[in-house]
Design a protein around this nucleic acid. Structure first.
Lengths: 229, 229
DNA sequence: GAGGCTAGTGTCAGCCGCTGACACTTGACA
DNA sequence: TGTCAAGTGTCAGCGGCTGACACTAGCCTC
């Protein structure tokens, strides 16, 4: 904690030690995801992962607090980009619109950040495992809840309201998050695991929020359904 | 599986054996919740719970698949009542309204079902532990996701749409579920742990869905805020 | 009411996730 | 070059959870 602090954070010169650390961590992530998509989450032990990178189990746990954490590391990168994107939205945008655009526009940034660490296809396959593995899904949802908390704070600040006395930021984000999760779920259950498919699903899901909350589905149903599937 | 099947399900005569089972299970739940609220979730081992009921650890795991399950057993009862209530709503109600009324109106049924098993206050205190214990919160969220899936199917059936081709049921339920969770969270973080407080929070949160999704908060903000807290 | 049948239980052994303690190695920096 | 701290391996141990197997106790039939 009382370490020598580099001036700008760590950007200027990684340092040999630091580079090695980064390297092992990345290797652990890659090995973990590889094993997980082939043998399944429960079929992969931490010992397997550690052995694949030739470190001890103890070392694994110095990098990741749990087996879940390593599996959700890459999604975590994506979440980071999204919060950044929300923060960067112009303040005159409506809150819901800001969230919407942030998610839809950060695709490239996410792809780049993820691709630097693991092949994109691997990441996609991991999502399927997440959705179909109870323990992993639970952890993912909890993390999503934390993300929502963070987004609520950002939205509140943007709109100049107090996040504790005005429930709207949290409510908006919760509803939004729920919809995003539906898109994730539909995507991981479907056949087309491409990025475009996910992006398109998110777009259509968000388009359906209004109609879904509408008073009566039966009258205006066919009207607000752009195209099926 | 090829057991002798009682005609009506199990209602007519519980049978001595069956009664004993019910009894141990209830005792396990009660002991578990007692321990959990006093020593915390992580501070309570399955051995502790089993010992308190004077059964072996192995037996505990024959009743509950995991430590989480016993902690979330009572919330599970509440969820059951809610799905029943949704199913019972008149079909001419708008979907969102049906969900809303189902939740707000099943309070008595929930109270009765819960009270038969554990003191209401204990149940309330458990909620606080759930929200503040990562592992437990994760499990809770996963179960909520399952509940949402079930509710989506009910809504879809009600509205005569196909849950797999029309995303609206899932989206509606996801948004609704998100809002309910916000209420739960605010409640468990607040001072007033009464049922009325939770109910009131849910009501106001649901009232805020429209405004929260509205285009611009700054113009109509003060307008749609009934009362603070 | 004695018999067999089966559901439920306890015991035991063991895997796996995860942690604290301690000794050792290796990059950093004077 | 020598000192210091950061990072690692080893070991021992706890707690959640499971399969196997033997035992006990309700149930049902004759």
């Amino acid at each position: 904690m009382d370490t020598v602090r580099t001036v700008v954070g760590a950007l200027p010169r990684p340092g040999l030690r630091e580079r090695k650390k980064q390297q092992t961590r990345d290797a652990l992530v890659r090995a973990a995801l590889d094993l997980i998509v082939t043998r399944g989450y429960d079929g992969t032990t931490v010992d397997d992962i550690a052995a694949a990178v030739d470190v001890s189990q103890r070392t694994f746990f110095r990098y990741f607090a749990s087996k879940e954490e390593v599996a959700l590391f890459v999604p975590g990168l994506a979440e980071q980009r999204i919060t950044e994107a929300v923060r960067a939205r112009p303040r005159d945008e409506a809150p819901l619109e800001a969230l919407r655009r942030a998610v839809l526009d950060s695709w490239d940034a996410i792809g780049e950040a993820v691709g630097r660490l693991v092949p994109m296809e691997l990441h996609m396959r991991v999502y399927r495992v997440i959705e179909s593995t109870p323990a992993l899904l639970a952890a993912h949802l909890r993390r999503s809840a934390e993300l929502e908390e963070e987004l609520a704070a950002i939205i509140a600040a943007r709109e100049g309201v107090d996040v504790d006395s005005d429930p709207r930021p949290r409510i908006l984000v919760a509803a939004f998050g729920g919809v995003i999760r539906v898109a994730e779920r539909l995507w991981s259950a479907g056949d087309d695991l491409s990025e475009e498919a996910l992006r398109e699903l998110m777009r259509t899901c968000l388009d359906h929020v209004g109609p879904a909350l509408a008073a009566n589905w039966r009258t205006d149903a066919s009207l607000n359904r752009p195209h099926e599937t």
